[in-house]
Nucleic acid binder design. Structure first.
Lengths: 146, 146
DNA sequence: CTAATTAAAGGTATTTTTGTCTTTAATTAT
DNA sequence: ATAATTAAAGACAAAAATACCTTTAATTAG
C-alpha cells in the first residue's frame, strides 16, 4: 500500500505526537528504535516532515531533537502524506491509467471510487493527536517488537 | 497502490478476456501496444499468468499467442493478484507493522478494517469477464492513449 | 570561549523494481 | 524436412527505493 518512507513517516509522527512536547524533545535514535526503522533513512524522512515546520519541529544541539506543538498535533494525517509526497496516492487510477476520469473511466473506476473516498476521508478527518491517543491505550502499538 | 507489474497484469488480462478466445489468440506485441506497457516486461508478467494455466493460456508458433477460455474468464480478479504475488497486499497493516492484528491492533487498524474488506470484496466478487464487458462499453478503456 | 551534542546536508552503497535483449524451444505452414 | 513465427527462459541494464556514512552547522552546557 504505502512505501516504506510513508510508513516510517506515519509511525514516527504518531510516536512524536505521543511522547514529545515543546519541553520534551526526542532524539533521532530514540524515534528510530521506537518505531523499528533504520535511523539514517528515518532522518531523511523526518527532514521532510520538518520542512516549513509543517508537521514536526526540530532543534539541533544538546537536548535538541524532534517535537510537536499542540497545534501540530491537531493536523490531519493527510499532512503527513503531503510532506512525503504521497498525497496523490488515493487520487490515482487503480489500474494505473493516466487518463482515467469520471468522463473516461477505467472498468474499475466507479467501484473503486467509494473506497478511494473512504481512504481520503480516513486521512482527512483523523488528527495526528487522535491516532497518538489510540496508540497510548491498551494493546495499541506502533513498533514492530514481539 | 499496485506495482507496475500488477497494473500491467490487470490491464493485460482484461484486454485478453475482451479480445481473445480459444480460436483467436493475441500476440505479445498486440497486447503490449493495447495496454501501453513495455513488451518485454509484459512478457514476464504474462508468463506468471500462464503458470499452471491458471489465468491465461499461451501457445507458441505461428498463429500462437495468449488467450483465455470461457472458464478462465469466469475467474475473480483476485486470481490475477495471486498470480503476480500481490494477493496479500490488502491483508497487510496500513502502517507496515508485522504484528498488527485484531488482538494487537495498530492505531488505524479498526478504521482501516472495513475499507480493507471492501477492497478484498471488490477483487473477490468481480470476475475478469465482468470487467472486460465494462471495458467493451462506451468510454471505458484500458489503454493509456490520449 | 570551548567542547559536546544534536540535526542537516550530501554523498555513497545496496536492494528492489522495472525494463531490455538474446537465445532457446515449440508450433505451424509450406 | 525446412523455414517462419511465436512464447519461454534467462542474462543483462537502468532506474527507483531503501539504507548507510561522513561532514557540516547549530545549539547548549560548562
Amino acid at each position: 500500500m504505502f512505501s516504506k518512507a510513508t510508513e516510517y513517516a506515519l509511525r514516527a509522527t504518531i510516536y512524536i505526537a505521543q511522547k514529545s512536547s515543546v519541553e520534551k524533545k526526542l532524539s533521532l535514535s530514540e524515534i528510530a528504535q521506537a518505531i523499528d526503522s533504520p535511523p539514517s533513512f528515518t532522518a531523511k524522512i523526518l527532514q521532510l516532515l520538518t520542512k516549513d515546520n509543517c508537521v514536526i519541529h526540530s532543534l539541533r544541539g544538546p537536548n535538541g531533537g524532534f517535537y510537536m506543538t499542540e497545534k501540530n498535533k491537531q493536523l490531519p494525517l493527510k499532512k503527513i502524506l503531503e510532506a512525503v509526497n504521497e498525497n496523490d496516492l488515493f487520487e490515482k487510477c487503480i489500474l494505473g491509467l493516466k487518463k482515467c476520469s469520471e468522463t473516461k473511466p477505467c472498468p474499475l473506476h466507479f467501484q473503486y471510487k467509494p473506497i478511494k473516498q473512504e481512504l481520503i476521508h480516513l486521512f482527512q478527518t483523523n488528527t495526528i493527536q487522535e491516532l497518538s491517543e489510540k496508540a497510548d491505550n491498551e494493546s495499541l502499538f506502533i513498533n514492530n517488537a514481539l
